[in-house]
Amino acid sequence: NQASVVANQLIPISTHLTLVMMRSEVVTPVGIPAEDIPRLVSMQVNRAVPLGTTLMPDMVKGYA
C-alpha cells in the first residue's frame, strides 16, 4: 500500500505548503504520493483543505 499526502491541519486557500502542514498516511482513495512531499513545499493549494483530507493533484497549483 502506497502512502499519500494528507493535510495535518486546515490549509486555507492559496496557502504555500510547508512540511508541518502535511503527513503521509495510507488512505483510500490514493492521492499525491508521500514521496512527493519535498516537491510540494512552497506550492500553493487552490482550495481550502480540511484537516485529514488527502491531497489530490488538482488541489495543488502547478503539481499536475
Rank of each mutant, 00 (worst) to 15 (best):
N1H: 11
N1V: 15
N1Y: 15
N1W: 13
N1D: 15
Q2I: 12
Q2H: 11
A3T: 08
A3W: 07
A3Q: 12
S4Y: 04
S4T: 04
S4V: 01
S4W: 02
S4G: 05
V5N: 01
V5W: 00
V5L: 03
V6F: 00
V6D: 01
V6A: 02
A7D: 00
A7K: 02
A7M: 04
A7L: 03
N8I: 05
Q9G: 05
Q9M: 14
Q9K: 09
L10G: 12
L10A: 14
L10Q: 15
L10C: 15
I11N: 01
I11R: 00
I11S: 01
I11M: 03
P12G: 08
P12T: 09
P12N: 07
P12E: 11
P12I: 04
I13P: 11
I13S: 14
S14I: 04
S14N: 15
S14K: 11
S14T: 09
S14E: 14
S14R: 11
S14F: 15
T15K: 06
T15C: 07
H16F: 13
H16V: 09
H16M: 13
H16D: 08
H16I: 14
H16S: 14
L17A: 00
L17P: 03
L17Y: 00
L17M: 06
L17I: 14
L17F: 00
T18H: 05
T18Y: 03
T18P: 00
T18S: 12
T18Q: 12
T18V: 06
T18K: 06
T18M: 13
L19S: 11
L19G: 06
L19I: 11
L19A: 14
V20R: 12
V20S: 13
V20K: 12
V20M: 14
M21R: 00
M22P: 00
M22D: 03
M22A: 01
M22C: 03
R23S: 10
R23T: 07
S24W: 06
S24H: 08
S24A: 12
S24V: 12
E25C: 08
E25I: 05
E25R: 06
V26T: 12
V27E: 03
V27Y: 03
V27N: 01
V27T: 13
V27H: 04
V27I: 07
T28S: 13
T28D: 15
T28I: 10
T28A: 14
T28P: 00
P29A: 04
P29K: 05
P29Y: 04
V30C: 12
V30K: 07
V30L: 13
G31M: 02
G31H: 01
G31D: 02
I32A: 02
I32N: 01
P33H: 09
P33A: 14
P33F: 09
P33S: 09
A34V: 10
A34N: 06
E35D: 09
E35A: 09
E35Q: 09
E35R: 06
E35S: 11
E35L: 08
D36E: 13
D36W: 07
D36S: 10
D36Y: 10
I37R: 06
I37E: 02
I37K: 07
P38V: 09
P38Q: 13
P38C: 14
R39Y: 11
R39T: 15
R39Q: 11
R39V: 08
L40M: 06
L40I: 09
V41D: 03
V41N: 03
V41S: 02
V41A: 04
S42Y: 09
S42K: 13
S42D: 15
S42W: 11
S42H: 12
S42N: 15
M43Y: 06
M43V: 04
M43S: 06
Q44D: 03
Q44M: 13
Q44K: 08
Q44V: 14
Q44N: 04
Q44W: 05
Q44C: 11
V45D: 02
V45S: 06
V45M: 05
V45Y: 00
V45R: 00
V45A: 05
V45I: 07
V45C: 06
N46D: 11
N46P: 02
N46A: 09
N46H: 09
N46M: 10
R47E: 11
R47K: 11
A48D: 15
A48S: 15
A48T: 15
A48G: 10
A48E: 15
V49P: 02
V49N: 02
V49G: 00
P50I: 05
P50F: 06
P50E: 09
P50L: 13
L51A: 14
G52L: 04
G52Y: 05
G52I: 03
G52C: 04
T53H: 13
T53L: 11
T53C: 08
T53Y: 14
T53M: 09
T53E: 14
T53V: 15
T53D: 14
T54C: 04
T54M: 03
T54V: 10
L55F: 14
L55Y: 00
L55T: 01
M56Q: 12
M56E: 07
M56H: 10
M56D: 05
M56P: 01
M56N: 05
P57Y: 06
P57D: 05
P57W: 06
P57A: 09
P57M: 06
D58Q: 11
D58L: 11
M59P: 00
M59I: 05
M59H: 09
M59R: 00
V60C: 03
V60N: 03
K61P: 11
K61S: 13
G62I: 04
G62Q: 07
G62T: 06
G62L: 07
G62A: 08
Y63G: 04
Y63W: 15
A64D: 15
A64K: 13
